[in-house]
Simulated assay, not measured.
Amino acid sequence: MTISAGRLSHPAVRALVTALNNHDEQAFFDALTADATMSDDGADRDLREWCDREVFATRGHLDVRSESDHGLSLVADYRNDTWGEMRTRWRFTVADGKVSRFETGQA
């Protein structure tokens, strides 16, 4: 069973996941702080480069399986045209109503 993006409990996370699933690059970056950072499997990455490669150019999509920590932690099935589908974990840090950092990796 999945949790639709529109039902995620944290508004900043909900905005980011909704934009990702809608392939709305403008809304995705609008949901982030100007100085947002991210990591993938424990390694910091260039956020824009990673998002271009792993999300927007490859039609990335999150099917959220569970959320915890007041909606700031997710377990989701992530898929894109490059890697197929895999179980992933996501951890979000929020500042001023926007995501300032996210960490993802295989669950």
Rank of each mutant, 00 (worst) to 15 (best):
Q106Y: 12
E103R: 06
T37A: 12
W50E: 05
G97W: 08
S100R: 13
V64M: 05
W83G: 07
S68K: 02
D40L: 10
S66D: 05
E54L: 03
W50R: 03
V94T: 02
N22Q: 14
N21Q: 00
G71C: 04
H23V: 00
D69S: 12
A107K: 09
D44L: 00
E67P: 03
E49D: 13
M38N: 07
N80R: 07
L62N: 15
S66I: 01
D24I: 03
E67S: 04
L16T: 08
N22L: 02
T104M: 12
E67V: 01
H70P: 01
R45S: 07
P11E: 08
D77E: 15
I3E: 08
S9E: 06
T82Q: 11
E49N: 08
L16P: 03
M38H: 07
Q26D: 14
G6Q: 09
T2K: 10
F56M: 05
E67F: 04
R91Q: 15
E54T: 09
L20E: 10
V55H: 02
V17W: 10
Q26W: 06
F92I: 06
S9D: 04
A43D: 10
P11K: 00
A107S: 15
H61F: 15
R59E: 13
W90N: 13
L32V: 01
M1S: 15
T58A: 15
R14W: 05
G105D: 07
L47A: 01
F92P: 06
G71F: 02
R48G: 05
R53S: 09
D44R: 06
A27F: 07
L74N: 07
V13Q: 12
L16K: 13
E49P: 01
D81L: 10
E67T: 10
Y78N: 04
D96M: 01
Q26R: 14
V64R: 13
G6T: 12
R7E: 15
D24P: 02
S100V: 10
T33S: 15
V17E: 05
R91V: 15
N80Q: 09
L62F: 15
P11S: 01
H61V: 10
F92D: 05
G60W: 07
G6A: 12
A34R: 14
S66W: 08
A19R: 05
N21A: 04
F28E: 00
R14F: 07
